[in-house]
Design a protein around this nucleic acid. Sequence first.
DNA 1: CTATTCTGGTTAGCCTCCTAACTATCCGCC
DNA 2: GGCGGATAGTTAGGAGGCTAACCAGAATAG
Lengths: 185, 185
Amino acid sequence: MPLLMIKDLPRYECLLEAAKEFPDLDPSATEVFLHLLRTGDEAFRVVEAHLASHDITQGGFGVLMALWGNCRRGGGAALSPAELAGRTGVTRATMTGLVDTLERAGLVLRAPDPHDRRMMTVSITPRGEKRLRNILPDHFRQMAWLMAPLSENERRTLVRLFSKLLRRTAEDGGRSASEAVAAAR
Amino acid sequence: MPLLMIKDLPRYECLLEAAKEFPDLDPSATEVFLHLLRTGDEAFRVVEAHLASHDITQGGFGVLMALWGNCRRGGGAALSPAELAGRTGVTRATMTGLVDTLERAGLVLRAPDPHDRRMMTVSITPRGEKRLRNILPDHFRQMAWLMAPLSENERRTLVRLFSKLLRRTAEDGGRSASEAVAAAR
DNA sequence: CTATTCTGGTTAGCCTCCTAACTATCCGCC
DNA sequence: GGCGGATAGTTAGGAGGCTAACCAGAATAG
């Protein structure tokens, strides 16, 4: 999510002033929105840099985690590309490319599904699992380091507020947020 | 920031269990981290979709906002690509491509700098400004809609906690977070 | 049992983003 | 005044993301 808007977040007074010209501008909403995107982006870049030092991308890491997690919780050792795409929030076409890359690196294996000849199964290789176990401890430490400034109470608060926002984006099923905004006029 | 980890955030009990195997895993830190990335991603996608309906990308929008904002606050009507790259948090190489696209669409104009022949100046065209004024009201409404579930108090809290996290990622100047993590072992 | 429709994976083409290298220009220093 | 280092913009090459279109196989309708 690089390049969200501007790197230096505007001061609140600037937002108040801009709101005079744009009556639709809600200063506090804008401020928290910009902070959210900026903070998410920063956190994302930190872990992305860490993963890059282990020669793996965010996308590849997500796929490996999905496979490994599924395996560990007894869901079977393999998943179809469509299932992986659904779990990682990416299109099937993108998943093809990700699995290509991972397969080239020997971290993952593609095999035809014996029951349905349209389907493939993707499974993590021992090498992929080893790579993952190599990355994870640092990865966890990094998340802990990033969140260290927050007390347990503050963390609970954040999760609660995030959940509120996630319900917002998830709500109104087929109706997109744009439509909802348009309808509110 | 698409594909951050997994679409369905793990339940807290799962994190507690995983922490038994990985002593470095801080369950509450992991939980808030995942929620942060997920929420940021959702919010990002919402506005991205809205901007796409106006035939503009996040990157292009950021550039236009930087130019327009700079102009409005009396900083002059034009900025150099390097300056734009700095403000939007993108590399100079990326900015070349973004300005290319915007120039093709007639929203922006490139001109040589009269004082320094290495430099270019990028300025927003009337058409670009018109496009922006066309987008902004909906854009502001969208941010307000997304943040509507939060009270003013909750918004203040969020901004305060985000600021804490931003200080964390910005701190330790040259030293990267990875190194800090490594040093903490 | 055939025809239509649906579904899974891939391909093609585009955009954004990156790093690394290159070119042109400016600047400071001897 | 000229030479080396810094700086601005671009180019080249790669990866990830998307949509749209395609093809093979499966499911369903009649």
